[in-house]
């Protein structure tokens, strides 16, 4: 049993099947890529982990438990959208995270924020979108969680910010935690990944270590992805 288990996990919206009988076992100490085209079910899977969606059938377990308040204390989630309470400034946001999450490392967050030159007193709504995204990432990565769920962390972000995000993910690596990065921008992240899950139309096509995929196919993950899903 891993830190994140999916057993025959299915999610349907009426006639639409977003996830079809997904079975996965993810263990700590790995950085795993959830790779697939848009609309393949990546975000659905992550939202199911966070109990923001309920399964139609099957189950999803985090550290052996169904998603709930306890699992949320173990999981640090970075959604693919702007979610911060925009009336807050950074100092208040730090307080917020410290209040609710015991594993939040405010010191780490402050270091990262100051290395980016972000003014702690500035209200979030006055920041540019790119800066807000970085703040969101910093908050997420400053938690010493068991599971990190990053939903499209580098999409819609300039290359310098992309570098910063990936470096932050690497340097915050914790051998006891599992990091799941969902993205369709495979070339940018593949060197960071230990394992890759290839998902398409709600079904998991492949789950293997990146090195064995590369050795087997002789391709980079990006090239393999393009060839396999080229008609999408």
């Amino acid at each position: 049993m891993g830190i994140l288990d999916c057993r025959n996990l299915t999610k349907k919206y009426g006639a639409d099947t977003a996830l079809d009988n997904v079975n996965l076992e993810l263990i700590p100490g790995r950085i795993v890529g959830l790779l697939g085209p848009n609309g393949s079910g990546k975000t659905t899977l992550i939202k199911l982990c966070m109990n923001l969606l309920k399964p139609t059938s099957g189950e999803i377990l985090i550290d052996g438990m169904k998603p709930g308040p306890y699992t949320k204390s173990l999981v640090s989630y970075l959604p693919d959208r702007d979610i911060l309470e925009n009336w807050m400034n950074v100092l208040q946001l730090l307080d917020f995270y410290t209040d609710f999450y015991q594993d939040f490392d405010a010191g780490r967050a402050v270091n990262m924020l100051s290395s980016l030159g972000i003014d702690e007193r500035m209200p979030l709504r006055k920041m540019s979108k790119g800066t807000r995204e970085k703040v969101q990432l910093i908050m997420t990565m400053s938690r010493r969680a068991k599971v990190y769920l990053l939903d499209e962390p580098i999409a819609g972000v300039d290359p310098a910010a992309r570098d910063y995000i990936l470096r932050t993910i690497i340097s915050n690596y914790d051998p006891e935690a599992m990091v799941l990065i969902s993205t369709h921008l495979i070339a940018d992240v593949e060197s960071v990944l230990d394992e890759a899950i290839f998902i398409r139309q709600g079904r998991v096509d492949l789950f293997d270590s990146c090195d064995s995929i590369r050795e087997r196919t002789g391709l980079t993950l990006d090239e393999y992805f393009r060839r396999t899903y080229h008609f999408e």
């Binding site: 923001l52 308040p69 306890y70 959208r81 309470e85 609710f100």
Partner: peptide, 10 residues
């Protein structure tokens, strides 16, 4: 949108 932040709380 705020649900993503609020409902992620333990």
């Amino acid at each position: 949108s705020e649900g993503y932040l609020q409902l992620a709380l333990p």
